[in-house]
Write a protein that binds this DNA or RNA. Sequence first.
DNA 1: CTCCTGAACCGAACGTCGTTAGGTAGTTGC
DNA 2: GCAACTACCTAACGACGTTCGGTTCAGGAG
Lengths: 216, 216
Amino acid sequence: MPRPRTPLLSRDRIRAAALALIDKDGLAELSMRKLAQELGVQAASLYSHYKTKEALLDEIGVQILDKVDVTGFAGSDWRAGLTGWARSYRAALAAHPNFVPYLASGPGRHPAALEIADKIHGGLIRAGWPPRYATMIGASTKYLVLGAALTSFARGFDADTQVYLDRYPNLGQAHLLQQMADEIDTDSFELALTAFLDGLDRLRPTLGHLGQPGHE
Amino acid sequence: MPRPRTPLLSRDRIRAAALALIDKDGLAELSMRKLAQELGVQAASLYSHYKTKEALLDEIGVQILDKVDVTGFAGSDWRAGLTGWARSYRAALAAHPNFVPYLASGPGRHPAALEIADKIHGGLIRAGWPPRYATMIGASTKYLVLGAALTSFARGFDADTQVYLDRYPNLGQAHLLQQMADEIDTDSFELALTAFLDGLDRLRPTLGHLGQPGHE
DNA sequence: CTCCTGAACCGAACGTCGTTAGGTAGTTGC
DNA sequence: GCAACTACCTAACGACGTTCGGTTCAGGAG
């Protein structure tokens, strides 16, 4: 078959189909051949649009992370900024749990991520945190979000969940268990975030030079 | 070549060689053929000792996690228990950073993990936390450890690190940068852990029925 | 001492993977 | 209308995890 009159593929169509396959069957199940079949095309044709599989996955990654919201850092309320960022970050990852492992272990050095990191850093400094703390707080929050997104969804029911099950023997139906696991995940994340922010609140007054962001 | 007089392979030798390869070249670079070559053997021979590659990786995982310490939960000081667990957990992962992605995204349902989860849960309840909070605190701490182990080492220099670089332009040599990145990672983890525990401390008195662990 | 069962290796192969080369026909610009 | 480009194809390469069947050694049974 030669070149068709109207293009069968587009980068958007490819990305959408790939992400749908990943959502349905998992990251490991995605192959260029299966993806091509899903699109009614041969595998080699995909390489007219994406240079490698990795390039495709990277672009899916930025698409997912596009929904992360850092507008909360516009004001001077650092707690609101961090909370909004962390929640939207986690929500973006939770929307495509099977893709999280790629985001978590990939190199991920897009300029968009840099820009976000800058906004967070700026917001924290504007709120009076010393630069070093701004850096660490940003990193810590990221730990929490990624850890929460990874351990909950990527694993399905993991060892910890099994413990919950032992303690709730009357819940026998699978979808209820899943729902309960989701709820525990969400509650755990919220608890961690709140406790972390509360701890920072308590730490703040003990810091010296607040409001005068020095170097190092 | 037939069966040798003295066995060339053993599960321990295979595991050690595999982990060495992973540490050196990364998880993705490990293949059964390369591993066999490293051991002076054909790939098929490995299957006399491990049924699949996944079984091998799983056993490497339990070996790594064997160093996690939960003895701190023996007493009634829940902070000491959590801190000891979290630090040893992170240290165990940091010892083999290239393996962390597998642990983070794998199913990982070994009985050892269950036992650890139980000890943590028991320790927290003995310290007076309601069961539901014990569950959430355990999960939250795990988020932190896994997130910290993943985002720092698995990625080498990620986007955030680039920000640090911009702010420390006088550090030009690579090994100094790596050392600084490690230090920031450690400090961030410690900050997150401390702030989280402080936040829990603050939350604790506001909870009702402390010391009388009820159900749900 | 022999026989047998099982274990530990090998060579060769199967099917799948990401990717590339080379071909062909439609589209676009001069 | 011709060239350059584009978007598809078929076919293949090398690497992967794994399996099959074969060969040789080890250890226990008679």
